[in-house]
Structure formats: structure tokens, C-alpha cells
Amino acid sequence: MDDITQHSLSAQATDVTTLFNLHYARLVRSLTVICGNSEEAADAVQEAFVKAHLKWRKISTYDDPVGWIRRVAINKVRDGHRSRVRRDRAVERMGHEVRLMSEQPAIDEVAELLSTLPKQQRAAAAMFYVEQLSVLEIAEALEVSEGAVKFHLHQARQKLRAHIESREEL
């Protein structure tokens, strides 16, 4: 009995570890595009995997455990974004300027452009171009319809393409 329990625990740990090794980097990079901060994205993905560890018996029965982890991480980023916006507004009321700059100076323009995109367009573009997810997977992750995902992708692509073409003309 103990052997069986030990085996199941090790198997569970192996499954979570396997998921972590396979998807952690992709998730962090995608969320970095979404939130514009790699550390914040890493923290959100790690929190999501911690929850997955603690609720693995239930999550392992899902069709797409990674999709659950992704949704948890995105929600975490959104919560962090809300709290950050509140903090920035408070700082702004105190008279200080708020910097909306990415931590990577080389791509500040694109990052600034991304920060101007609506969050759904930004998330759809990040998952499609960075994580290489399908429209269906993006729709499940964002809990919207496929048509909505296509719309967000189209809008995001138009804006980014315009920015790239303007740079090429220069």
C-alpha cells in the first residue's frame, strides 16, 4: 500500500515536473509579452504551477492541464496589472511621472506599441506568435470564442504590421 502511494506521488511529481519542463519557458515568454515584465511573468507562471502542484489530483483529470495553468497565470498577471495600475495612479496623484517603459531598451518602441494595444489583442498576439498556439487554444485560454480570437489577432497584426512598415520606410 505504501509502495503504491509512494509510486503515485512520484508519478504525480513526475507529471507536474514534465509539464513544468515542457511549458514553463513558453509560458513565461508569452506572459512577458502580455505584461511587459519578465519577472512578473515568471512569478505568475510559478504561482500557477504551485497551484497545480497543490491541486494536481483534480487538475490531472482535465483535458488540458496546461491550459488551466495558463489561465491561472494570465489571471495572476491581470491582477498584478490592476494593482500596478492603481499604484501608478496613486503615484501620479502624488506628482510623480509614471514610466511605461519596457525593461529592454532595444525594443522600447514595439513594447510601447504593445502596451497601447488592448489586453485581449496583446494576449492573442503573444500566444499566437510566441507560444505558437492555435486559435482554438487561444480561445480556450482567454475564454472567448474563436471568432473573437481571430478578430483580436487581426487587429493586433494590423497595428504591428503598420509599425513595422513605418520603420522600414524610415
Partner: peptide, 14 residues
């Protein structure tokens, strides 16, 4: 182009 640009923003693998 967009894919490479966004991958640059995403940074290296952690």
C-alpha cells in the same frame, strides 16, 4: 516579422 519581433520582446528562455 511580427513573430520575430514579439520573440525578441519575450526575451530568452528563463
Amino acid at each position: 516579422d511580427i513573430s520575430s519581433l514579439l520573440n525578441q520582446i519575450a526575451g530568452s528562455s528563463p
